[in-house]
């Protein structure tokens, strides 16, 4: 009889816990679902507010989602803070860093953007997106040598990628490597015929 009471108690407790958990899961899933609907409708503040009741500072998903929604709502500094929490929770997830780059770029915090790309490349050295955009940053800062290394990497991985080919060509041109630049501009014209940037580059080489 005593054992039966124990079993009944355990079953009752497990039932309550399971019910509570499934209710909690359904609350979370419903909040996300409503948040997606509001995002689709362009109501970003509503989408943020849907997630507020289930917000947990140690939940990667909710932080990254609020980071994205805050970015869409043009709350850039708030978005950066959510993304930074997500980065701290999963330091090797490059997704959060790519997310963070968007609001950082919006407020022109280029040093932090660079920091994030460098960290992404530390985790994933072959990442073409990070290699390309960090290359663009170096190119804009007239650091053609650093830019060239990154574009070269992307072109070696994706020889038919127009964006990195044209950027590599411009780097070569700015570093007075005219023969290489000509080959690359011509290659860019094969990938994208009559491309104005490649034609301008070739005109400068004449």
């Amino acid at each position: 009889m005593e054992n039966l009471k124990k079993i009944a108690f355990i079953l009752l407790f497990a039932g309550i816990a399971s019910l509570s958990m499934s209710q909690s899961q359904s609350v979370i899933q419903s909040a996300y679902s409503k948040s997606y609907e509001s995002e689709q409708a362009g109501s970003y503040t509503t989408a943020i507010n849907e997630l507020k009741p289930i917000y947990k500072a140690d939940d990667y998903t909710v932080n990254i989602r609020l980071g994205w929604l805050s970015y869409l709502a043009k709350q850039y500094t708030t978005a950066i803070r959510y993304y930074n929490i997500a980065i701290a929770l999963k330091p090797y997830a490059i997704e959060a860093r790519f997310g963070c780059v968007k609001p950082l770029s919006a407020i022109e915090s280029w040093e932090k953007v660079k920091e994030n790309y460098l960290k992404i490349l530390e985790i994933d050295p072959q990442n073409t997106v990070a290699n390309y955009w960090l290359g663009v940053m170096y190119y804009n800062a007239k650091d053609y040598v650093s830019g060239l290394k990154l574009f070269e990497k992307v072109v070696n991985l994706y020889p038919l990628d127009y964006d990195s080919t044209i950027m590599l060509a411009w780097c070569k041109l700015n570093l007075s490597k005219q023969i290489d630049a000509r080959i690359l501009f011509n290659q860019a014209l094969i990938i994208r015929p009559n491309d104005s940037s490649a034609l301008t580059g070739l005109k400068l080489l004449k």
């Binding site: 507020k52 009741p53 917000y55 500072a57 803070r81």
Partner: peptide, 8 residues
Amino acid sequence: NSFSDDSL
């Protein structure tokens, strides 16, 4: 906590 501890 989800309301009050949310510094954001």
